[in-house]
Design a binder for these strands. Structure first.
Ligand code: NAD
Ligand code: NAD
Lengths: 277, 277
DNA sequence: CCATCTTTGTGCACACGTTCACAAACGCAT
DNA sequence: ATGCGTTTGTGAACGTGTGCACAAAGATGG
């Protein structure tokens, strides 16, 4: 089942993944226009509203079909419908949220959640002290009920907001129950069988990416290359690098210092790691 | 300032953006190994732990330098240090969170936040009934204090968790105060001056992408192409498409029905849009 | 019906990202 | 030392994504 030609996940029905990821953005902008009763919009205007370049937007739409009119633009209502249909938003998607702690509560209360076809079918938790309480008007049910809920309500999307340690186990259980799409908020790499999609939302990763660029900005104008940060050894070819590597391993693991003969190595300005976790 | 050769954002110091985005993933896996006192790890093992393919991991690391030892693998502690340094995590990054509602509270309480060099410098809100309360042991301060806090604590990263309507305004104010990196949770396209980085976390978009693939899975085995879903007109070339477009515009905007002459158009199985927002 | 103006849809070139596959480097045993 | 098994680091091929630039389509006005 589900033979894919060669790549890992070839584009489905010709719509590139990058385009799919932008469709919700366009849809949001179009919905805003629709609410203002704007009848048509040009690719230039819509692109500006969605924060992309207009050529990209036109190419994205071209994968859906030719829905524009040259010299005029796109019909807002019609595009809203076409994109909604393409994304599968003309139907209702029941979701379960597992792990009703800080984040689970926030998600349960999130209005924008239900606004576009996603309906919270159930809130689930393993902790008996949490089960029975309610969030956003919905009761928190016990994990034991998961299978019955997924089956009876035809839930195919699950959201995981448990601590990282429980995420894989919860994921397995969701998949076993029949869920085939998972949105994971726990900082864990989930392993799933073929045919199940996982997407993650990871605050920590986003912040670290920002920090990387931030650091870059800071160390830009000053004299190039802050000194002492990188050993010259590491870019050097030949046996010098090998000696440096040996040094590192010995220092890092703090054992077998005996057979380090320092060979040609002199400069040792490296800090021995063990950084703040 | 900040001249980039030709592209929008050429790779900084040779590290591709895609690689930067994976470094936090590697770091997380390495930290776990470090806690188990594993001294060295092969690219194959580490790649499995991080959920990527080993060739990609090796190439990623090659951008940082040659930190491995052939026949052995990578020294865990040393790599943790190198990646931390590359991401700028050897220094402390104070952040402000603006908009302490459901989500802001959850973030403030999030432990994994502070664990890697990110310190919550302040919680801010505009609502007088929220200001003065406390979340996760920190007091919620009024927006008026933003500029003073950013300056005195050298905050360069801001997190926006306000309603969408306030996001751009809050963003402008953060930038004006000196913040140069923004993590946005509001479903809004933020406009910022050059030199400011914005990353977004958008639950709604993630769910919609999942729905797209979910729909694909559902409509896969059944006889190809669910009928009645797409008008044959829209893939047709020539004047037929034009007539269809005219029909759509007229139907969508509900005006100027007079000059639709139906020309060659017969089949009109399309629903006239106006979908659930 | 023609001229003119606007805006789409897309071919093309290039940049970026991924994966393969293998030589070179290294540890270790003999 | 030498040989053997292991694993890195990277060149090269391939796939995906982006953006330019323009012909063709359609609107509009005379
Ligand atoms: N709070 C945030 O802002 C934030 C930000 C980023 C990531 N995260 C991640 O999101 C997850 C949840 O964060 P949180 O702050 O809400 O944590 P939390 O501890 O407040 O809530 C976790 C909930 O999961 C439940 N749970 C534990 N094991 C379970 C199991 N096996 N089955 C079902 N439920 C189980 C607990 O009873 C608890 O109610 C964590 O993985 C965290 O790292 C949180
Ligand atoms: N709650 C979620 O799970 C969730 C999920 C995805 C996205 N979001 C988005 O995150 C944002 C916050 O969601 P929430 O549920 O926490 O909303 P919320 O209404 O609970 O909280 C918003 C907070 O922002 C404050 N605020 C409003 N205007 C402000 C301004 N100009 N300056 C400073 N503070 C201001 C309000 O006083 C309030 O405390 C929203 O944009 C929402 O769409 C939330």
């Amino acid at each position: 089942m589900r033979r894919t030609p060669v790549g890992r996940q070839t584009r489905a029905r010709g719509i590139p993944e990058a385009t799919v990821a932008r469709l919700p953005l366009y849809l949001r902008a179009l919905t805003a226009l629709s609410e203002r009763s704007v009848p048509t919009v040009s690719s230039e205007e819509l692109a500006a509203a969605a924060g992309v370049n207009s050529a990209k937007l036109r190419k994205d739409f071209s994968y859906l079909g030719s829905y524009g009119t040259r010299g005029v633009g796109y019909d807002v209502e019609y595009l809203v419908y076409q994109i909604s249909r393409e994304l599968g938003l003309t139907q209702d998607w029941p979701v379960v949220i597992v792990g009703i702690g800080n984040l689970g509560h926030a998600l349960a209360n999130y209005g924008g959640f239900a606004s576009r076809g996603f309906r919270v079918a159930a809130l689930l938790d393993a902790d008996p002290t949490v089960v029975g309480s309610s969030a956003a008007g919905l009761p928190v049910r016990h994990m034991d009920e998961l299978e019955a809920i997924v089956e009876s309500q035809h839930v195919s999307i699950g959201v995981i907001t448990t601590p990282p340690g429980a995420a894989q186990q919860v994921c397995d259980r969701l998949v076993e129950a029949g869920v085939t799409s998972i949105l994971n908020f726990a900082p864990t790499v989930l392993t799933v069988p073929d045919g199940v999609d996982v997407r993650k939302v990871d605050l920590s990763i986003e912040l670290q990416i920002l920090a990387f660029h931030e650091q870059r900005k800071a160390g830009e104008e000053p004299d190039q290359g802050r000194s002492g940060e990188e050993s010259v050894l590491d870019r050097a070819p030949g046996p010098v690098r090998a000696a440096a590597a040996k040094l590192r391993r010995a220092a890092g693991a703090a054992k077998d210092i005996k057979d380090i003969k320092a060979e040609k190595v002199e400069n040792d300005s490296e800090r021995p790691a063990v950084m703040p976790a």
